[in-house]
Amino acid sequence: MKQPNDAKSTILEKIRAGKPDALPRPEMPDFAYESSDLVGDFVRMAESFDAKTDHIEGIEAIDSYIKEHFADVNTIYSAVEGVSGNVHLGWELNRPQDAQQVDLTVIAGVFGVAETGSVWVTTEQLTMNSLGLLAKHLIIVLREQDLVGNLHEGYKRANLGSQQYGVFMTGPSATADIEAVHITGAQGALSATVLLLS
């Protein structure tokens, strides 16, 4: 599916003919994140985006956490080893659209960012991207030791380009499009819970 190349060459030619004199590429300084409490900062920021946060002792505690806090959910998809789900890739979940029937998706976060309360998640953790987007509720499991300070540190760790899809998820889906009233659960997840493993 190659279209004729003349659009490309016209655009590049016009740029070369009209662009300003080349300006230097600035050095990126090291913007340090000053804080002695990454966990506290992360929790505060994540909650400001309406994420729920909780501390758990180990992966094995998650099943009972779900029973206690998500009593109403019927379908659970787990991409985390040691957490039980009742729907599975290749069985009930074949196409991206199938994620619509999932009530709760459990995934692991790669790392969290204290500055913004975000968790970095990629296709590798999601297994199928739509499972993190169409599921009604989301649990992200994150090790406390995997917290970084600001986004500069975060992007260093994200290693962009190595994954097809990577997303900083920060709280559940939200909107303020009607009279600036803040509403969680716009098109994506209705709730997002970050479980911090110490």
Binding site: M45, S48, F49, P96, E115, T116, G117, S118, T123, M128, N129, L151, A158, L160, G161, S162, Q163, Q164, Y165, G166, V167, F168, M169, T170, G171, P172, S173, A174, A176, G188
Partner: peptide, 18 residues
Amino acid sequence: ALGFAITQYTSHYHGPAE
């Protein structure tokens, strides 16, 4: 834009999904 630290979904694409 809105006075928030980040957008809820800040997403990076480096190819098509499977």
